[in-house]
Every structure is written in C-alpha cells, then in structure tokens.
C-alpha cells in the first residue's frame, strides 16, 4: 500500500514539474502569398471602380488563380518549401473559396423558430483574409527569342506595422527550359535568403516582443476625452498621459511610439507586446495576443476611472479601442 502511495506521489510530482516547466509556445503568425498589385495590373487581373469620380483599381485575386498557372506554380513551390521548414503558409485561393462557401452556408443556418445567425457589419469585415505576414510576390518573364528569363521580387510585409521583414529580388538563368522549370529555379534561388530574413524577424520578436498597433477613439456623445484630467498616484494628469504610462510599464522594455494624439484620438505604433504572459482569466501563462495584452489597459480604465471600453481586434496585431460604451 505504501509502495503504491509512493509511486502515486512520484508520478504526481513529475506531472507537476512537467506542467511548471513546459514552455508556452507563442502564437504562430499566419503567412499568405499575395500577388502584387503591379503583377495583377500587368496581367489584367483587376477591375476599376468609380468612387466619387476617381477610378480605383481593385485586384481580382480569384481570377488570377483561376486563369494563371504560373502564379499557382510559384505559390505551390513556395508552400512546399515553407512546409518543409515546419511553417506552412495559408493559401489565398483556398481562403477565398472558403469565405464564399461560409457565406452561403451561414445564410442558410436558422433555428427552429426561423431565426438566422446574428452578424454585425464588423463580423462581416473581419471575415476577410487577414494574414499576419503578407508575402507580396511580383515576377515577370522576359523573352529573348527562344530563351526566357524570369525576374522576381518577393517582399514579406508585417500586416500591422507595414514594416518590410524580408525582401528579395533576382533573375533566373536565361534559358530555353520550360517556364515552370525557370519559375522553380527562381524560387529555389531566393528562398534560403528569404527564410533567413523571416528567421531574423522571429528572433527579433522573441527578444523584443511582437509589434502591434493600438488605436483609441471616443464614441460620439461620451462626455470625457483624452484631455480630461483624473487623479493618478496623488497627482492630476490627463487621461492621455495616464494611458501613455500604461504602455510605458507594459510594453517590452517600454518600447512603443505614440504616433498621434488629439482630444478624441490616440494612435500607438510599434508597441512591443510580449510573446507570452499570464492570462488574467485563467491565471496561467499562455501565448499572448493583442486582445489579451490590451485587456490590462481596458481593465485599468474601467476599474480606476469607470470608463467602459469596446474592443475591436484585427488579427494578432491590430486593436481599436473605443471609449465610452461597451
């Protein structure tokens, strides 16, 4: 009996140790290859929309993937290499098909009373394809008689900060080989450099935190604004300054930048959010995202100053906070 009890205790201790020391994995950013606007326009995959007399070009990605086999070959090869690096990329083509199917399916879902799913306009906007890292791909095939040469430009852009993470340009060999072979050669030529650029970005993220953007606004009709004065640690300070102090204390190494401030709007860019942190609800360490990170600020505003805040989250790195109401 004593032996069984001892084994049980040892096992329980080992489980405890495993849970305590298990490293919490950070949230994996989603990556998507998107044909560049320049490529879409060159190849006629766009439509023109008249907005207040100004003609705006809208890219038609669905048509591009349906009608151009070259872009599909390039995306497939890049997807293959990224999967081999244990970092599969999301397919824009499949995401668009998925969105169309979901829209049709959700429209048909009703309960027994005939009520359909409640959906706000923000929900509809949030459904769009939102990768965390956009791989902007441009390529051009130059023909010299029977020979062909592919020139390419691949840029990885952080979807929230707009920062260029990795950029690669180059040309394939000038050859009469089939175009698919040249496209594959181009991908093989730049992928090592490109992956190295991504690795640098991830190393930076783990050292200094993920970059997010926070916008703060005020609902029309709310009586307070960012210049309203409150008491803070025995002093009187503007709400905007108190919010600034929160970012100073909570961003990794106090790294953030207040891009603009008025009485009704504050924009914080390059806010370095830690990759992991304690979830205030569960009390356990978990992967951090913008929603969890900013909940500390909304809690402080509500608990200390009675200011209700509505949160709108866009992906892992963009938050809109509107003060005045839930």
């Amino acid at each position: 009996m004593k032996r069984i009890l001892l084994i049980y205790l040892v096992l329980a201790f080992m489980c405890q140790v495993t849970v305590t020391f298990a490293q919490v994995a950070a949230k994996k950013p989603t990556i998507m290859v998107v044909p560049s606007d320049a490529w879409c326009i060159r190849n006629g995959f766009y439509s023109e929309v008249d907005i207040d007399g100004v003609k705006e070009k809208t890219m038609d990605y669905a048509k591009a993937f349906q009608e151009n086999s070259d872009i599909r070959a390039l995306v497939a090869k890049m997807g293959d290499i990224m999967a081999a690096n244990q970092f599969p990329i999301k397919s824009l083509e499949e995401k668009m098909k998925d969105l169309a199917t979901d829209a049709g399916y959700n429209a048909l879902v009703t309960n027994k009373s005939g009520e359909s799913i409640r959906e706000t306009s923000i929900d509809m906007l949030n459904k769009s394809a939102k990768p965390d890292i956009i791989l902007d791909l441009d390529f051009d095939v130059k023909r010299n008689g029977p020979r062909k040469q592919v020139s390419f430009n691949l840029t990885a852009v952080d979807a929230y900060s707009g920062a260029i993470i990795s950029g690669n340009t180059g040309v394939s060999s000038n050859s009469s080989a089939p175009l698919t072979t040249l496209l594959e050669e181009a991908v093989l030529s730049f992928m090592d450099n490109f992956i190295n650029g991504l690795q640098r970005h991830f190393d930076d993220m783990f050292q200094y935190g993920r970059i997010i953007k926070v916008e703060m606004k005020i609902f029309d009709g709310y009586y307070d604004d960012f210049e309203t004065e409150y008491e803070y640690n025995g002093m009187t300070a503007e709400l905007g300054d108190i919010i600034n102090v929160w970012f100073e204390l909570n961003a990794v190494e106090g790294r953030y930048s207040e891009q603009s401030r008025s009485e009704t709007q504050m924009i914080f860019e390059d806010v370095r959010m830690p990759m992991t942190g304690i979830n205030p609800l569960s009390g356990r360490e978990s992967a951090m995202d913008a929603s969890k990170f900013i909940s500390g600020l909304t809690k402080m505003l509500k608990d200390n100053y009675g200011i209700p805040v509505k949160r709108f989250i866009r992906g892992q790195g963009k938050v809109l906070l509107v003060l005045g109401e839930k």
Binding site: K27, K28, P29, N85, L198, Q199, F202, M275
Partner: peptide, 21 residues
C-alpha cells in the same frame, strides 16, 4: 543543403523557423 540544415536543427546547433511557436 536541406539535409545538412535538418541535421543541425535536430542536434540543436541551429534553430528551426518554427521554434518557439
């Protein structure tokens, strides 16, 4: 090159792209 990279990653000499996630 790819096999060499896998070997160094498996031996924990270099990090893989997905390490930490």
């Amino acid at each position: 090159h790819e096999n060499l990279k896998r070997k160094l990653q498996a031996d924990r000499i270099i990090k893989s792209l997905s390490s930490g996630f």
